[in-house]
Design a protein around this nucleic acid. Structure first.
Lengths: 342, 342
DNA sequence: TTGAAAGCGCTAACAA
DNA sequence: TTGTTAGCGCTTTCAA
């Protein structure tokens, strides 16, 4: 492996000149630059990452903790991950992936100076990783909202707003009884922030608009979906629209509704909360409130990068939810009521 | 940040002693070790990864290239990824994740000495990354089989064997006309090795056993699945069993069969080739040839780690496929023929 | 516009 | 059993 000294020697310059050609941190005359670049090319020189990290205190690597918990949809996680990786590359950074959900891994890579910054996914309301993260010298961005961010920056879809938007969207189309089929019990039990937030928004808006509403947790399986649908129909017999915030269960919920004689959207409207790709690839495309996972990942990287040089104050960024119509929500105001009561 | 010298000073020993306590590369007296360990704890000392990499030529990081190509199922990829990450941790290594499918990324992290070894997924028959990988000084393992491995080690499920096993399994249960619903055209067109291998095994065994057979590519969408099913039924009208090697399309293929009046398994048996989790979480659990993605990832890490110190010769490891019965394959020899001809 | 040289924090060969 | 010290390959200050 050629070193910077090899390059300097063959170019007939000092090592610092080579370094400055590489970093652009001081002006170099055109002829010198060309000689150096030629030498670099000829020798196939690549700076040694460790040496660079040691001298500059910059690793060009960010850590991404993407815990694969039970009952989280991997395809959504992958969207976040690719968003982070892609964005990181635009900042000349690579991504070190941590999949085990423990503070120890974060501490190891941060305290060991393996990374310049950290992005942490799947934040719970009272997340044990947050206190540790707050002590690190590297900037950190949380994807999700903990109860107490301890001075850390956060980014996420505004799930509370999404819950409200869902109800408002349905109410505006004449639905007076709506249901929310949500995350699996396990997700709720660990107080994953998005699950609680969407529920809060859903309930408060239903109350404001005087819409009848019900919520059921939903295991991510066909039988779980059937059970959830039954529970919802029992709780809100007149339900005409269902909001589904559970990517894995989504197709099962729809087929469970069909099995009970409820067609989409003639009998029951369905509004999903999921990434657009998921909504589009259902057996029947579903209207949805898009979860822009890729974008959120990219924004997380932007935020962390902005905090690398200057110390930007902490902030929380909530992306505004929007509905994308794919035809699975019926406008009841526009059609005669065809609903057959159960 | 405390350095090794800080630790040495507070423990009253030399830096090398601290280093050796950490590495265990030379015997240290008990009292000395205790003093050093105490100092480490008190100062919260963590070795600087870059300094370590520079001095030892070891980064404790491996690169994982997991390209997210169109039409590959992310949940399967995630299985590989977690297998790699989990196994890497048992060897005290972290994982640098590359998602962009180009040789440049591999070259960057390898030539820049960012990683000790590389694991590369989703290998095509004539993969442009292979020649580059063969020139790297870091050991590399491919997940998948290129036409020419150029001296690199490979690991994968024996897909050719899986194709044969599928036919044999069905033939043994009285099926004389079988179909293979395979990967999307895009996957076949880029000559992804597994797609071609399973087809080869499937065809050759069908020929040997004198079983009628047909193969159709299948887009990963409901309409793609319907088209594939129609094409298969046209090509092999008497088909009594379908092998599906397409995780995303799997549920759609099953429902397309149902829509055409073919129940599983009474009218048509279904044998999937996919990770067990996928087969289990279908609306109806499916018998399958397990794709042990997690294990393959772990084996890849083992192989690469074995080549870190000694130079092990290259090898190709093909995991033996096996059928897991979940009831979706009918034993036609054991029941009267109930098949309603189309 | 360029060069010399002092670190950055660790490992491991050599000495004792 | 432990210490001394010369690098590892780079960045950046200070000088010219």
């Amino acid at each position: 492996m050629a070193t910077i000294d090899d390059v300097a020697r063959t170019a007939g310059v000092s090592t610092s000149t080579v370094s400055y050609v590489l970093s652009g941190k001081r002006p170099i005359s055109a002829p010198t630059r060309l000689r150096v670049e030629k030498a670099i090319r000829e020798l196939g020189y690549r700076p040694h990452a460790g040496a660079r990290a040691l001298a500059s205190s910059r690793t060009q690597v960010i850590a991404l903790m993407a815990p694969l918990r039970v009952d989280v949809d991997v395809s959504v996680i992958m969207q976040f991950v690719t968003g982070v990786v892609t964005a990181a590359r635009t900042y000349e950074h690579d991504v070190l992936l941590l999949t085990q959900d423990d503070a120890a891994g974060l501490d190891r890579v941060a305290s060991g100076s393996m990374v310049d910054a950290l992005v942490v996914m799947d934040i719970e309301d009272d997340d044990p990783r947050v206190p540790l993260l707050a002590t690190l010298r590297q900037p950190t961005v949380l994807i999700g909202l903990p109860h107490e961010a301890a001075g850390l920056s956060c980014v996420d879809l505004d799930f509370e707003g999404a819950g409200r938007l869902a109800v408002r969207h349905l109410a505006a189309r004449g639905h007076r009884a709506v249901g929310l089929v949500g995350s699996p019990p396990a997700v709720l039990e660990r107080h994953t922030s998005y699950a609680e937030r969407i529920l809060r928004g859903f309930r408060s808006e239903a109350q404001s608009l005087e819409v009848q509403s019900g919520h059921v947790a939903c295991e991510s399986s066909p039988s779980g979906a059937r059970a959830a649908v039954d529970a919802l129909l029992a709780a809100v017999p007149d339900v005409t629209a269902v909001v589904v915030h559970n990517e894995v269960a989504l197709p099962f919920v729809v087929s469970a509704l069909h099995d009970r004689g409820l067609r989409t959207p003639q009998d029951v409207s369905v509004l999903a909360v999921c990434p657009p790709e998921v909504a589009e690839s259902q057996p029947v495309p579903l209207s949805s409130i898009d979860l822009p996972a890729h974008t959120i990942g990219a924004v997380a990287v932007e935020m962390v990068m902005a905090r690398l040089d200057q110390d930007h104050p902490a902030e929380t960024r909530l992306l505004t939810p929007r509905v994308v119509d794919r035809g699975s929500v019926l406008d009841r105001a526009a059609v005669p009521d065809q609903r057959i009561s159960p």
